[in-house]
Design a protein around this nucleic acid. Structure first.
Length: 418
DNA sequence: TCTGGGGTCCTAGGACCC
DNA sequence: TCTGGGGTCCTAGGACCC
């Protein structure tokens, strides 16, 4: 590894909201959502009413991402709310990615609105990293219509912290010699991997700032927080040993979809329809990647928000929707006591590529026919949309036959290890 | 006020084996 | 008899991220 690594972290400012604003301007709207108190929020009538992103003027009303739309409206009655449109966000993500790849062949997608760029061995044509970052920032604004912050440092952790400094449309550096001045005074909750639970525990230990965490006894943190203690202590000191791309092709570990149901469910038949619909989406996404699963999990949330999950390691591997649905039902039956249900989820993991050897396990005539049917349905849905073909059980139920986001328009999700 | 959905990783306890 | 220890796998739940 080079002695002086250079890493950029590019972070879209209020991503969903910026993208909605840019799109509306392009469509001829004269009002820029970014200039007024506004937010992207879920549908309250479908019980999905939380704030997903907010404008900077909305921030002035102390509106928080993740809080309920109702609470946000109490703080700011004039708040303009728009629904999320995920297809747009994926297009914006791809456009940004294409632009970033002009600057480095090594771009790591961290989430839909964040990327890391390895700039270490990139020829900058005599310009400084800061100058190049400004060019990227300017081009994204003028060519794509939204703004980003870019953080620059010697590793991903520090670059990410830097991009979180003053917003929007800014370039910041956070080199090791700047840690004490720029990072240590920040509240400890601003550190990557310090969420609410850890922040509260640290608070009780008298640790309020990143600097206090950095100078705290590492052994005590290790005793209190196990492995996590080591991680946050290292981060507080600017230490992040992770390279750019962890072995390139360590693909997805699991595929899951879940949904909040607009009403409380007490009828097992309705619950099963949701399980089937989610299984259809999960199965489709799995087959699109040419994978098989060996573990199935089901999660539920009661109307009082208590949540539970069950999982089962299978004695076989499969890529079939029917197998998935059957296993999901048996897990669900073991899990559900009949309490009114608000949310259900289906997830598969222990994924591996569908190999020729596995295919021979599948080649019982029935399995073969089922596999052909899955493929036919996948192809039709890809071509004509998910509603082109549906199971009869959904007829006249009002339940969507294929449920959940992230379909063939898949994008790499975040990796938790920096 | 009424609380999403997509992920990853870690831990602890129990089962089971040698 | 009353008592091992180490290893692995499985499961449920919790913490974190955007």
């Amino acid at each position: 590894m080079s002695a002086s690594r250079i890493v950029f972290h590019v972070d879209v400012n209020s991503a969903y909201l910026s993208w909605e604003a840019a799109y509306r301007l392009q469509m001829g709207d004269t009002l820029d959502l970014r200039s007024i108190p506004s937010a992207v929020g879920g549908d309250v009538t479908k019980r999905r009413g939380i704030i997903l992103a907010k404008s900077i003027p909305a921030k002035a009303y102390n509106i928080q991402t993740g809080e309920s739309v109702g609470a946000a409206l109490l703080k700011c009655p004039s708040l303009v709310l728009v629904r999320p449109t995920y297809g747009l966000y994926i297009r914006c993500h791809r456009a940004m990615l294409a632009l970033l790849r002009e600057y480095s062949p090594r771009v790591q997608v961290f989430s839909i609105d964040e990327c890391f760029l390895e700039m270490t061995d990139v020829r900058l044509g005599g310009r400084s990293p800061v100058e190049v970052a400004h060019e990227i920032r300017n081009r994204i604004r003028t060519e794509l219509g939204f703004t980003v912050n870019i953080g620059i440092s010697i590793n991903k952790l520090l670059a990410k912290v830097a991009s979180d400094f003053r917003k929007p449309d800014q370039v910041h550096t956070l080199y090791p010699e700047e840690i004490e001045e720029k990072m240590w005074p920040l509240p400890v909750g601003d550190l990557f991997m310090v969420g609410r639970a850890t922040r509260e525990k640290l608070d009780r230990m008298g640790i309020r700032t990143i600097g206090e965490l950095a100078r705290f006894d590492r052994t005590l943190l290790r005793i209190r927080f196990k492995k996590h203690g080591d991680v946050i202590w290292s981060y507080a000191n600017g230490i992040d040993s992770a390279g750019m791309l962890e072995s390139e092709h360590d693909g997805v570990k699991g595929i899951g979809n879940s949904t909040t149901i607009p009403f409380d469910v007490d009828d097992p038949k309705i619950a099963r329809l949701y399980l089937l619909s989610l299984s259809e989406m999960v199965g489709m996404r799995l087959r699109d990647k040419g994978l098989t699963y060996g573990l199935v999990s089901v999660s539920i949330r009661h109307s009082d928000f208590e949540h539970f999950s069950h999982q089962k390691k299978l004695l076989y591997r499969s890529d079939s929707t029917d197998d998935l649905y059957r296993e999901a039902c048996s897990l669900f039956d073991a899990l559900w006591t009949g309490v009114p249900l608000r949310h259900v989820g289906v997830r598969i993991s222990d994924l591996s590529p569908k190999t020729a050897q596995q295919l021979s396990f599948f080649d019982h005539p029935r399995a073969l026919a089922r596999s052909a049917l899955d493929k036919t349905i996948d192809d039709l849905r890809l071509k004509y949309g998910n509603s082109v073909i549906q199971r009869g059980s959904f007829l006249h139920t009002g339940v969507q036959p294929v449920m959940g986001g992230v379909g063939d328009e898949d994008y790499p999700m975040m990796r938790s290890a920096l």
